[in-house]
Design a binder for these strands. Structure first.
Lengths: 187, 187
DNA sequence: TTTATTTTTTAACAAATGTAAAATGCTCTC
DNA sequence: GAGAGCATTTTACATTTGTTAAAAAATAAA
């Protein structure tokens, strides 16, 4: 997906504003395994995945807990860094070679003060992230691990082949043995 | 807390913008038990709790699951309604007599188009809700029910006396019997 | 205060989940 | 294609959690 379309989908902008916003974006590629965002740094930029998949994880008593997967079209950011200029929770690792758009926050913040359309774009951006994050919370609160595993299979059909089951198990909040049992049951 | 302070804390506004925004707000009181937001309706307004406590819950196979508590100073809204004009997940019930500020979304949306400062206020509002929602997700993903119960005791010290333990158990994602065991262990 | 009603805790058992270790399957290299 | 190195599944067992029902405690009503 092209950057213009991604930005437009968040909030339609008049031509001049659109150009100003696109000026904050650069294309960038990284190889599989690259750490795009690091939990120990303040990461204020926003990325959009043009191609590839990624995961966010956090270290909890010497083992990793995965709590997000991202695929083509998804947004990558450290919310706490972007919003509050503080360290976030996540390391974000690319699970395969990725093509990304990088939106520089510094430039963006300036535009928020200058251009009402871009300010509203930023508002809509945050609002849409808010709804997505709520959906993640609802999924965690209301659905069983089995339901969430099936959900994952549907939403990310290619993920299973590329991600270790240990990561998926931690995402679901269960042990890898339990996930194996779920997989055996589903068949 | 006064409304001026609540609004200012989200994002500082110049005087004229502040007055315009305050014009969208009215004070309103409701008794204990009142349903402030309903899951079967589109609820676009935003409320701020001036005094009292509330909870959000959803009906899941004929029993209620609580997934949010709100206290003095907290924001009440249906994210999906406010952002996407769709029905949300939650019924929101007042757990005691409440004094609220009601921010009318219809008026607010107009101001977003007219006043860049208010557009940025709306951006910051969504961003702060985003960080709060992420924090709820992180808490659910990383912490045990026991840890989250202790967290709740600290963050909402008066809640326990006013909320049935069944609601708290569903909030923690465990049965009421398990919560009783946790409470017995902690002593 | 006594009674009735609701809420919380406890008990007993069944079911689900975790842990550790062994077995199986898969991939890659030589 | 044999073997090394991982990833995944399976097994066996211990622990935790849920369910149901009953007892105890707390709250409200008479």
């Amino acid at each position: 997906m092209e950057i213009e379309q991604i930005l437009d989908q968040i909030y339609a902008l008049p031509e001049t504003s659109k150009l100003k916003l696109q000026n904050c974006v650069t294309e960038i590629n990284y190889p599989k395994g690259h750490l795009l965002l690091r939990a120990d740094k303040i990461e204020t930029n926003i990325y959009f995945i043009r191609k590839g998949i990624a995961r966010a994880y956090s270290n909890r008593d010497d083992n990793e807990v995965t709590f997000w997967f991202g695929k083509e079209g998804d947004t990558v950011l450290s919310m706490k860094s972007y919003v509050a200029n503080q360290k976030g929770y996540e390391d974000i690792e690319l699970l395969e070679d990725c093509e990304l758009y990088e939106l520089k926050s510094e430039k963006l913040q300036k535009l928020f003060q200058e251009d009402i359309h871009i300010a509203n774009w930023g508002r809509k951006f945050a609002e849409k992230e808010l709804v997505k994050t709520e959906e993640r919370l609802i999924s965690r609160q209301f659905r069983t691990a089995t339901e969430r595993y099936k959900e994952l299979l549907i939403d990310y059909p290619h993920l299973i082949q590329r991600v270790q089951l240990g990561h998926i198990a931690s995402y679901l909040g269960i042990s890898q043995v339990s996930l194996s049992r779920i997989r055996a049951d589903i068949k």
